[in-house]
Design a protein around this nucleic acid. Sequence first.
DNA 1: TGACGACGTCGCAGCTAGGC
DNA 2: GCCTAGCTGCGACGTCGTCA
Length: 287
Amino acid sequence: MINRVPSFEEYLGTLGRLSAHVDPIPTTPEADRIRRASASLADIGEITAQTLVRWLETHSVDADVLALTVGLTQEKMKNNLRNHFGTAGIVTLARTKPHELIEWLDTEFDLVRSLAAQRHRVYEFGDILVARAGTRVTAKTAGASGRKIEDELEQIAEDLQLNFQTRTRFTGRNGQSAPCDLLVLDDEGRQHIAVAAKGFDSTGSKLTDAVREIEEMASVRLPTQFVMAVIDGIGWKSRKADLQRIHGLWTSHQIDGMYTLATLSDFRRDLTRFATLHDLIRPVAGE
DNA sequence: TGACGACGTCGCAGCTAGGC
DNA sequence: GCCTAGCTGCGACGTCGTCA
């Protein structure tokens, strides 16, 4: 017997939800642990750096709750710890360097004041909904941080009065193309300099994707085209292997430069040099 | 105005390594 | 053997910009 193939609309109508609804007030062991740790923090008489260090002596496994207090999510906490202490292990830090950990959380994230203000506060329904909407804020700031490097590059290209495009693709050997965040062209539209801008404060396979993108740029480029990469953000400290792959492209001369926001003056110098080689620097009127 | 792609953030799983 | 941490990859998520 041959079954009739359903129409697209019929198939569409049979689609259903895959994921189960998640209880907004969870009762998992992890949620219970956080509640217990929060309760023990509420029991501390006065919140000071010293009393928090003493709290860590008996609650080192709950040290992550202090990070939650100042709004650090798991990944943000790891990245910031790795950036400052060279390790993401907060439990071990709480055991071996409790003074340094508390001092850092207080200096960087205002822990003592924040904890003292929050621990006995009565939260309203609206406060809870605002907290649940936190992921929207995260996504919004994510876009902004990603644009920070691009904006800096754009400003430099404008200063040099280059003919450029942003967030586009360039064409290299055999008509193959690759993505780039800044592309410098001549007046005839010939593409001469492609720049990648990859700023990540968080981690994930997207950093690996970024490396693949730059590798693609390196493999596609013509011998006459320059490829530069501006890479920054503490997320790369959690993906050192990926960062090394980009650095390897630089040391093997497959790309022509690698920079951070701290070395943008080098980027400007090299961009000027490459643009001059291709006669792309426009003479300033009156000169 | 809605659809869509691109983007960065995030949590998690699986594996490995080192210290006790 | 157990615990902890590091590394890597996967995929869901929300927002933004673009385009028709």
